[in-house]
Amino acid sequence: MTTTARTMLALTGLRVDVDRHGTAIPLVRDATLQVRAGEIVCLVGESGSGKSVTARTIMGLTQLNPRMSVGGSAVFDGDELFDLSAERMRRLRGRELAMVFQEPLSSLDPVWNIDSQLREGLRRRERVSQKAETGRLLEALAEVGIHDGSRVLRSYPHQLSGGMCQRVMIAMALLARPKLLIADEPTTALDVTIQAQILELIDKLRRDEDMSVLLVTHDMGVAADLADRVVVMYAGRVVEDASPRDAFARSAHPYTRGLLACIPPMIGERPEQLPAIPGTVPDPSNLPTGCSYHPRCPRASERCTVEDPPLTNVAGTAVACWRPGDVVIGEDELVTVRGQAS
């Protein structure tokens, strides 16, 4: 991990509310995290944790919806993003900030071929001769592992596979040579063998281009594979921010432990029942009092039900918990649910 590298992105107390019939419903309540240059930070959590909203807010996309209100701060390479004019923000997107979405096929415009879509992206950044442009496009495609570039350029999105479209999306993001790539579940819609290829590609670009990556994923396996830093979100909050080694072997937050425990093992003994986390992620319009994880938490105490724990830094790990654990997961600590109500 390159702890000395400069900070590319710093979110502090990010808050996103959506207005539903006059009441503000918090989608993100307190997201604080840093991404340093050349670092891959994995933002993990289940659906409804606010991880995708966080990613889209950095890109300035949630703000386009007038029912959304954004608070806190997002500093990108020295600039406060939320203070930038719409025009500056637009120029930043697709140049220094790029995003790759989960659904590669629907992120590409079906009526234009790949060539015109990539060229459009390139022209926003710089003007070169038509021929030089084509060269750059083929180069970018080769970089993402597409070697029959001229065929792909002529193709329309529906003629390409999901993995191919995702490569094209990444190539499009790369044409801009962004300082920060935000990837929102980039491999969730892909098969595992293709996922492996895309993950390798992202890792290689980080190494070769010193690009920073904020990778949003629900898959702890993907995070373990790529992350320099793991940030876990739950019910709109960052609950743990740790190095992968700490996050996986010595998870401080009971939620992180619970998440890890319910992934079935690929080797060794198979448990009769998986140690599932009871209950479900709370609805943002109806959050529990105190720590929002307390109704599902095996370690919850009296205090957890009334007071929301702040994100506290302890030995390189930030954790929002009144009773953080520092022991390796023991099965006895987790409740085993046998088809209990959710």
């Binding site: 890109m59 996309l61 386009l64 029912r67 995003m99 790759v100 979405f101 992120s107």
Partner: peptide, 19 residues
């Protein structure tokens, strides 16, 4: 980036529907 614009477009459409 086309994808971003596409996303922005959907947002605007969503807004119109909302109105």
């Amino acid at each position: 980036m086309a994808a971003v614009d596409a996303a922005a477009f959907t947002e605007v459409r969503g807004l119109r529907r909302q109105l």
